[in-house]
Design a protein around this nucleic acid. Sequence first.
DNA 1: TTATTAATTGTCAAAATGACAATTAATAAT
DNA 2: ATTATTAATTGTCATTTTGACAATTAATAA
Lengths: 232, 232
Amino acid sequence: MIEYSSQPHYLVAVDCIVFGFDGAHLKILLVKRGLEPEINKWSLMGGFVGSNESPDDAANRVLKKMTGLEGVYLEQMQIYGEPKRDPIERTLSVGYFALIDIHKYETQLNDDYKAEWFLIGERPKLIFDHDQMVADARKKLRYKASLHPILFEMLPKQFTLPQLQNLFEEVNDTKIDTRNFSRKITSTGLLIKLEEKDRSSSKKGAFYFKLDKKKYKADFQAFLNLIPNLKN
Amino acid sequence: MIEYSSQPHYLVAVDCIVFGFDGAHLKILLVKRGLEPEINKWSLMGGFVGSNESPDDAANRVLKKMTGLEGVYLEQMQIYGEPKRDPIERTLSVGYFALIDIHKYETQLNDDYKAEWFLIGERPKLIFDHDQMVADARKKLRYKASLHPILFEMLPKQFTLPQLQNLFEEVNDTKIDTRNFSRKITSTGLLIKLEEKDRSSSKKGAFYFKLDKKKYKADFQAFLNLIPNLKN
DNA sequence: TTATTAATTGTCAAAATGACAATTAATAAT
DNA sequence: ATTATTAATTGTCATTTTGACAATTAATAA
């Protein structure tokens, strides 16, 4: 029997940076850690990779278990593998960022896990290297969202242009000219204008739009350029 | 003593897809595997992650050991973690792609490892999921090189515009208009024209250029757009 | 002197960009 | 009923960038 004699073995985990958008601000979903060490401290949603699953499987499983959601937009970010990152035992963690529609989550809420949305700027300090993971995820989100239309994953089925622009502004931490943004986003052909208006945020009301899903899938790899003077 | 009771532990490895450019064609560096199973089959350069190193450290160590080169451009790609990907024992592998100046390597060549450059289109079949890794690496290289000036990492200190254009064409598997390419690459301000000419490939000779390293470092995150009608 | 070969350079119309503020649709106030 | 207020929506223009196109140049070979 062949074997890889005496090579060290490690725990392998996944951690998910879950982003959401409430219509005005970018949020992140955190949970109170359920095991020692650092039990009851805020942390990312995570778990160990089981014997019969890939890290991608594990990330999906963790998200399903903690939020009830399936088919979430999930993207592998990078591996965190400094020898001392977990004080108990060497654990390598694969970081994922997830984009979810915050409204879907609320209806699926399950109280087995103490999960809570935080404004991205008002989140508590996290355990281990999770703060670094969040910083990396924000950077990657910004990068990716500058090039591909992934931010729609955080919006409900119907959304308004001002909401969409707010989301872009939040993610990129910048202000965008309304006229130019409107022109560009319209020219992608990704949006379908609806009859109805959202009157909750203004007297005039803002027209709802929905995503052209066929176009979205076909053009996903095409590049956007919605952020002027982009320097990542 | 706290511990993560009974969670499974796995081997963790790194595998490097090493790209080079001979002035005309894109190449990949492969080695004959030195351990069972699949001993003496062609594979990527890889190794296990040791107890006191991160995966990034391990990738650098492997590259140093097998090519003699340090400070190589190395980028984490993704983790490969299907439960059955290694037939002997569960092993997760972190894939890296590396860009090296093929000429530097030749002078550093060390015969302890049977390494060989292959034209990207004429490489042998590789072990395990390494063919998939190569496919993923090519895709990522193409993507990244469309946006950032990483291809200079594969060129010698002095290079000509035709060489540079060849490299872009190889990576993107497309033809680029000489005039437009020249205009764009010049407008980045990344190139410094030298006095000397390379007369090896034509009667007229082509002027050498070198990279403006200060500008390169400063603008690395800035976006290029050298490939027209880019759809990744 | 001419032929050959590859490197280098220029023009132009169309599209995209960025900077800029007026108009519109609705409700609230007078 | 008219006016004020608020946020949504839309338009212009000069500049830059893009993509499509081929002529010229510098060297050696014939």
